[in-house]
């Protein structure tokens, strides 16, 4: 019996980090890009930040597709 704990641990770590990271970044993008309750619309700076977040997520998706295809 040879359970590959290292691989399992790696899967766990990578999944957790990737999920929390991506969800966090994407949520930041959504939040900064949407007007606060009762407030004005997002500033240019906020908007740029939001697009940076989206770009990061897009890159992650592209990497995901690369992983599937590879």
């Amino acid at each position: 019996m040879n359970i590959d704990w290292a691989a399992l641990g790696q899967v766990f770590g990578v999944s957790l980090l990737a999920t929390v990271g991506l969800v966090g970044v994407f949520t930041l993008g959504i939040v900064t890009n949407s007007p606060r309750t009762g407030g004005a619309g997002p500033t240019t700076l906020a908007r740029t930040g939001a697009y940076a977040c989206y770009a990061l997520c897009l890159a992650a998706v592209a990497y995901g597709i690369y992983l599937i295809a590879a």
Binding site: T27, L28, I30, V31
Partner: peptide, 29 residues
Amino acid sequence: VAGIASVCATRVTYRLARNADEGQTAKGY
């Protein structure tokens, strides 16, 4: 593995978006 990742991600996203307008964020989600 997926469940723990999902619990953490759900917590994170609700925490980050706690001040945001639900209608505005729904589209992004």
